[in-house]
Write a protein that binds this DNA or RNA. Structure first.
Lengths: 106, 106
DNA sequence: TCAATCGTTGGATACTCGTCAAACAATTGA
DNA sequence: TCAATTGTTTGACGAGTATCCAACGATTGA
């Protein structure tokens, strides 16, 4: 049985303004910094620094990132594993993720 | 009499999340594309593609960009001349403006 | 089978935001 | 001096959003 994926925009349909809007929020920018580490992250993982938020709130933010084309979500049983769409974003907006990574470090 | 400038955050106080939030709006992203051409732009200039918006709305968007640290505004008589803080942004978030410029072209 | 787990959905609430309109201040030119 | 110009400010209003809570569906493990 192959993996199932939640719906997401095609690479060529990713819009810059939606990406920037999605990332212009403290919680979602922190999620990005986690994804940028390359880990595939499950929603209910602890230690993401989001313990103060309700799980439905985190789920909402993850949906925003996915619908903007920033992340891809693989469904595996009860879990959803989220990862950055790094190749798609690098092709669509070259240098953007690299710049954000540097900016998040500083 | 020297030029007068509207208040703006210091370079080291520019926050990535505020910059992204400021640019995550269609009108403000269009303003950025105008500023990226290097022109110093006056608020009431025609041909900016913002004719459908009330002047107070444009003024509001320009204020958001300035307070996020994206632009600098010089006061000259009745006019305000707005320009990108390119050097400051390049120093604070290297590669970000270049990536946005490329992304706006595509 | 059945309880526990993971995540989503819908409702409720408070807050933010984009927009316009009107009033205002400052400046300029006649 | 005085009307026109430029841009800001304030208020109002509707739309969007961030958050929590409760309920739910799907899945897993005992």
């Amino acid at each position: 049985m192959p993996d199932e994926w939640l719906p997401q925009p095609a690479t060529e349909d990713i819009q810059l303004v939606k990406v920037l809007h999605a990332l212009g929020d403290p919680v979602r920018l922190q999620l990005l910094s986690i994804y940028l580490e390359g880990r595939e992250v499950s929603c209910a993982m602890d230690g993401l620094g989001l313990d103060h938020l309700h799980k439905s709130t985190v789920s909402h933010h993850m949906k925003v990132l996915r619908e903007a084309g920033v992340t891809a979500t693989r469904v595996a049983g009860r879990n959803r594993f989220v990862r950055l769409r790094r190749d798609d974003l690098d092709r669509r907006f070259p240098g953007l993720l690299d710049a954000l990574l540097k900016g998040l470090e500083g």
